[in-house]
Design a protein around this nucleic acid. Structure first.
Lengths: 186, 186
DNA sequence: GTCTATAGCTCGATAGAC
DNA sequence: GTCTATCGAGCTATAGAC
């Protein structure tokens, strides 16, 4: 079935070029499917993108769930999550879409971004709350604030790495925030 | 002279829509200038954008210089910089361009982003070094690492605020990183 | 389900008059 | 310095045959 090939091509192009710059023509070329197939399976560019972004979101959340729903200790979960390998020069598959006006101003498309970050925020803040209880993390910021901070650092690390063409910026920022969150340092 | 009007329109559109989505047609409409004027003053869309982004960069750096070249104490400078009012839902005028392939892959355009962030990194890390010397900031991360962290938090705060349509995410993240950088908290 | 043809529009840019 | 006219290409989508 060519539907899956079309979806995969769309996911790849959304990451590489974003929503506005992803043309149906490029999806056809990348997937090998024809125009007839594309508009048979998907009603429009937006419909295709909704399915593709939903699938990207599921992939990324499944990845994160492997960490947060594991039996690692809270501090280990945060460490693994923050030190995870990321393609910093390519950008976050979801976060990059937040720059696009057509995404932000469309209720259906933006709802996917909201849901993605809210789920991550929940997992991270729950984990931080537990780590604070056991004294492994400093309590001078609330779990909610710390979770927002962590997600900001990752998203901003992507931006800086791309802007400066320096893949290390993201890991530098992620390492730094982890150190500052932990107790017993000066 | 219509050159300035064209430049102002381009700066506004680059912020609002980004480089790829900024069409010469839209610049004409927004500035009131005709096609003849536009291509008389600027050779191409890229030429226009180079001047516009250079001007945006100068504006933002002038703003930051007011803080970092003031006679405030190092800690005050960082506090003022991090707590500055930002249009979080509109995004960073420079950072948002880092998502665009045509910017990142063009040596001339991307050089402007690199220069912008390198200047900020320099000011921030110098300030942090001084604050650490006087014991006002924790020394568990180097000035370079802390500067990268701070810029990441701001850039990522913009991304989160836009993605979640919540203007408070940026200030929440910025406040949190300031607390964690300071000494005498738990 | 997939193909080809075509529509109507906007893109970035050039030409040439004034 | 600014105007209008026009170019060739690519855009998103629809139509209708197979």
């Amino acid at each position: 079935m060519s539907k899956q090939k079309i979806l995969d091509a769309a996911k790849s192009l959304l990451w590489d070029r974003g929503y506005e710059a992803m043309s149906p023509r490029a999806v056809m070329d990348e997937s090998g499917a024809g125009q007839g197939s594309l508009y048979h399976h998907f009603g429009s560019k937006k419909d295709l993108s909704l399915e593709a972004i939903e699938s990207i979101k599921a992939d990324l959340l499944a990845d994160a769930a492997e960490v947060f729903q594991s039996d690692l200790s809270p501090l280990e979960k945060l460490t693994v999550f923050l030190k995870k390998e990321r393609a910093s020069l390519k950008g976050c598959k979801i976060g990059r879409l937040a720059q696009e006006k057509s995404i932000i101003e469309d209720a259906d498309l933006s709802a996917l971004l909201v849901a993605y970050f809210q789920q991550l925020t929940e997992w991270i803040s729950d984990t931080i709350a537990k780590a604070q209880e056991t004294g492994k993390l400093r309590s001078s910021v609330t779990p909610q604030e710390a979770a927002t901070l962590i997600l900001s650092v990752i998203q901003g690390g992507y931006v800086l790495s791309r802007a400066e063409a320096d893949s290390q910026k993201l890991s530098m920022a992620a390492d730094a925030v982890l150190i500052l969150l932990m107790t017993q340092n000066n």
